[in-house]
């Protein structure tokens, strides 16, 4: 078997193992809850029977290992449990299933992240390439200084500055990104313009700097020097000699930054009151709705791990040294 396959299989195995351990950590958060938890959810007036019934529903009478496998099995089938909210002391239960709460919101979040990625990835690569091409020129310096500043700013600052200028002072985009599935696509795009621009600014800054660094790193290698000595033009060197070898680091950079997008989306959704799972998670943390928090954490962590895994595998597959071992 080709040695690359072995490396990839090893990395895949490691990824699955990480997912398992992470899911176990997320699950065990329920076990760490303080004892009076039932009353906290059901209210002070809860009778002993309702609390006992609630504890039984959570399965707190079974050993933790058994509960973990039951939970993991249910998650694999798409059953994420039921929310804590909507329960009352009298024992009546109007709680909704977590999967039902998350489903439409997950679609919204993916829509926002997708639109951002479609704008951000080509823009960042173009900026990174041109900055590397005109290295140390005023253009490079301006782009660099701008991106360093954007990286240092908290996401909500960027978001509110955009609201101030594009919504409050000059009303071109709505400041509240409320969307629902019945809206036509154009209307939805208009609504999410500001959150998408905010995320784009943050992501492009990271991605562009990493692309630039990757290209400049390559430009220091001897074969580029050779191309320069034989008289190739700058554009030719970048496009014909550097870029083919740069795809691997660039692909890694893209996957890495899409993983970063997962985290950035939480704050931005809250700023623009966008109905995605980031906002749902923050709301559930405030109301201590543990099953929803767990499900959201699992989705975020899973996406993050898988994207990092993809980045690593792209890095392995496109590495010529691994593809043609001596």
């Amino acid at each position: 078997m080709h040695p690359v396959f072995i490396t990839i299989i090893k990395r895949l195995g490691l990824g699955v193992l990480t997912l398992l351990v992470v899911s176990a950590i997320i699950f065990s958060s329920v076990t760490m809850l303080p004892g009076d938890f039932g009353e906290a959810v059901l209210g002070q007036a809860a009778t002993e029977e309702t609390v006992a019934a609630f504890r039984e529903e959570l399965g707190l009478d079974k050993p933790a290992v058994v509960r973990y496998f039951e939970w993991a099995g249910a998650v694999l089938k798409g059953d994420l449990g039921t929310s804590f909210s909507g329960r009352s002391a009298s024992g009546s239960d109007r709680s909704r299933s977590v999967a039902e709460m998350i489903g439409p919101r997950l679609k919204n979040t993916l829509f926002l992240a997708g639109v951002t990625a479609i704008i951000a990835v080509p823009l960042a690569i173009l900026l990174g390439l041109s900055a590397a091409l005109f290295r140390n020129s005023w253009y490079d310096r301006t782009v660099n200084a701008t991106t360093l500043t954007t990286i240092s700013m908290p996401e909500f600052f960027v978001a509110y500055v955009l609201i101030l200028f594009f919504s409050s002072l000059w009303n071109v985009f709505p400041s509240l990104a409320t969307v629902d599935p019945s809206m036509p696509l154009g209307e939805r795009l208009n609504r999410i313009a500001l959150p998408a621009i905010t995320l784009t600014l943050v992501i492009v800054a990271h991605m562009m700097r990493m692309t630039r660094a990757a290209i400049i790193n390559l430009l220091a290698s001897p074969y580029i020097e050779m191309a320069r000595l034989k008289g190739a033009s700058r554009t030719e060197i970048i496009l014909k000699h550097a870029l083919p070898n740069a795809w691997a680091p660039i692909a890694t950079v893209i996957a890495f930054n899409l993983a970063y997008l997962v985290v950035g989306v939480v704050v931005v959704e809250v700023v623009f009151v966008y109905p995605g799972i980031g906002q749902l998670m923050v709301d559930s943390v405030s109301s201590r709705d543990i099953p929803v928090v767990q499900a959201c954490a699992l989705i975020f962590a899973g996406t993050y791990i898988i994207l990092n895994l993809v980045a690593d595998i792209i890095g392995i597959v496109t590495n010529p040294r691994l593809l043609h071992p001596r």
């Binding site: 990480t18 992470v22 958060s29 943390v285 954490a297």
Partner: peptide, 19 residues
């Protein structure tokens, strides 16, 4: 540490703060 770093820290912090 590898496992802890596999979870984005803001998400992890949010989860722990709910507990």
């Amino acid at each position: 540490v590898d496992v802890l770093m596999a979870i984005p820290s803001l998400i992890f912090a949010l989860m722990l703060l709910s507990i």
